[in-house]
Structures are given as C-alpha cells and as structure tokens.
Design a protein around this nucleic acid. Structure first.
Lengths: 161, 161
DNA sequence: GTGATGAAATTGCCTTTTCATGTAACCTGT
DNA sequence: ACAGGTTACATGAAAAGGCAATTTCATCAC
C-alpha cells in the first residue's frame, strides 16, 4: 500500500484534493461572476458561448460550434434554432457540401457580442489582478498546454475540409 | 485606444486567449475522460458529485451539497429524490433544526462511491503524469488559492452553525 | 452507375434543470 | 407570546438537455 489515510474526522474531503474537482470548481466560481452579468442581460451561457465563438471565426459549422461550446450536437441545433428565432445568428448552406450548415452572426448578434466581449475583457482583467500568482501568461499557457495534449485533429471553420 | 487588433483573418479567436474559456475547456476535456467511465456504469455526473462530496463529510445539508456540487438547490432536492429512490443516499432530519435535512450514504452508496473513488484516483494520476509541467502541487495550489479568494463563509457540514 | 459506408444536421421522446413560488421552521425585538 | 424577517427545503410549470433514431448528402469500391 502506498499510504494509510488519517482517520476520517481529521481527513479533509476527497474532493478537496481532487484535481478534476478543483478545476471544475475554480472554473465555476470565476465564471459565475461573469455569468451574473449575462443574467442581467437575459443572455444564457450557451448563447454567449456561441456568440463568442463566432467572433474571430465566422462560418463555423454546427458540429464545430458544438465542440467549441462544449455541447452535444443536437443541443447545438436546438440552441441555434432559438438564436435564429431571436435574430442573433443566421444559418447558410455550405456551397461545396450541402450537408454542412455554416453559422454567422447577424448585425444584431454582432452588436450584442461586441458589448459582451468588452465586459468579458474587463472582467478577465479583474480576475487576473485579483490573483497575481496566476499571472496571465503562466496560467493561460498551462491550460493551453493541457488543451493541446487533448486536441483532436479538427477541420478548420473556414473550409469544409 | 489601447491597441489595434490585427486583421480578422490573422487574429485568433477571442476565446482562444480568454481565461474563463480556457478554464472551462480544460476542465471539460479532462473531466470527460472520467465521465466516460461513469457513463459505462450508468452513473450521472451529478450523482457522482454528490457521492464524492459525502465521502469525507457525512451529514451534509441539501443546500450545502448544492453549493459543493455546483448545482442549484431545487436541482439538488430532485437529484436526491432520485438517489434515495435508487438506494444510494438517505435523508434524515436534523435534531436541532427541523428545517434541515442531513444527507448520508447508504451501504450501497458507500460501496458504489468506494469503487468510483478508486477509479478517480487512478485517472487523476494518469492526468498528472501526462502533464508534467502541471505538477500536482503547483496546479492544485494555484486552483486552491483561487478558490480560497472566492470562498464565502459557509457553515460546516457537521454542525448546524 | 449501383450499393455500401460514413458524415452532418435534424427530429422526437424522455429526463433533467431552471425559475419562481410555496411551506414550514427558526430568530429577533417588543 | 407574536409579528416580521429570514433560512431550509420542496414543488410545479416551462425550458433546456441527452440519447437514439432518421434524413440527406458525399465518398469509395466495384
């Protein structure tokens, strides 16, 4: 055996030393501050994610958006239905592959996301200021390294592959 | 203006440099590996979270569990309904404050979580081995520091406060 | 061309979550 | 004791999500 655990009443909870929990919780508590601002504007988190994903990368596909937004593909289809209904995005058929749907921002969606991104940048700066030991580059590079190692080859947004 | 952005086709997506997205995504991709193991056992993520939360900390309250598991309180009530139905946890009234419900593992719940924790520990070790630059202590301490700064005063599980 | 295989998006059914509210219990000041 | 405020949990209607098909299209082998 590698170790004996201290008695239950002295041991902290399992989750308090569990990496996956720490990651989920840190992400949650920090994000919740921003999500509060979204709530005030009646914008849901998935909607924000879609808008933000489209900013530097117009013409994403449904599957691509689902992957980026951490959602299932059918969920994304239904989310896009609502966003189209609300005039935030538009669907267009891909010319080369007619199965593919390309998603783009409407002028209204663009205006909305513009404002939200400004908020997001401001909030991010606050968070980083509040956590000096998590210097921007350090923590971001760490997270990016983790993501890179998990990256599956993914076709780009702007060509159908 | 603070800066001019490079043209859209050279600029990476907003989210690729956005801390909250990097945190959410890193948490998601890493956790998904473990969640896959849960899926094979027909155990949902929220159920796993409740079980894991109760391990070093029996007698949590409904509200306390909701907070720890990153869920809303009504969601937790209904989740506990199902978990009671499935024989994983039991509810008991607090003797001092009759509004309070204390939640504990049943023998079956205990057996289930025991096995899952073994899986979780193994998986966590793999993740840390795969990301040497994110040494266990370093990243965990960073995340804990973030969490500590967000901590709201919270009553302990084992006394009503 | 025909048929098989696989990918992209949608649909439908059912479960889960959310939001707002309801109900019971505790607490404080008078 | 009891009003007024607050906290803990539960409930109910409506929205969102998950999973398993289904549909449409592209591609590859023959």
């Amino acid at each position: 055996m590698t170790s004996a655990h201290p008695p239950a009443d002295l041991r902290q909870r399992f989750i308090d030393d569990y990496l996956l929990y720490l990651m989920a919780r840190a992400s949650h508590v920090v994000s919740d501050e921003f999500h509060e601002q979204l709530r005030r504007r009646r914008i849901s988190v998935p909607v924000w994610r879609v808008l933000a994903s489209l900013v530097g990368s117009p013409g994403e596909t449904v599957t691509g958006l689902a992957e980026v937004c951490l959602l299932q593909q059918p969920t994304m289809t239904k989310l896009l239905d609502r966003m189209v209904r609300d005039g935030l995005v538009k669907r267009t058929q891909d010319s080369r592959d007619r199965r593919v749907v390309r998603v783009g921002l409407t002028p209204r969606g663009d205006a909305v996301v513009e404002e939200l991104i400004a908020l997001a940048r401001r909030h991010e700066a606050e968070v980083l200021a509040r956590h000096p030991e998590a210097e921007a580059l350090a923590i971001k590079n760490l997270l990016r390294a983790i993501l890179r190692r998990h990256a599956k080859p993914r076709r780009s947004a702007t060509n159908g592959g």
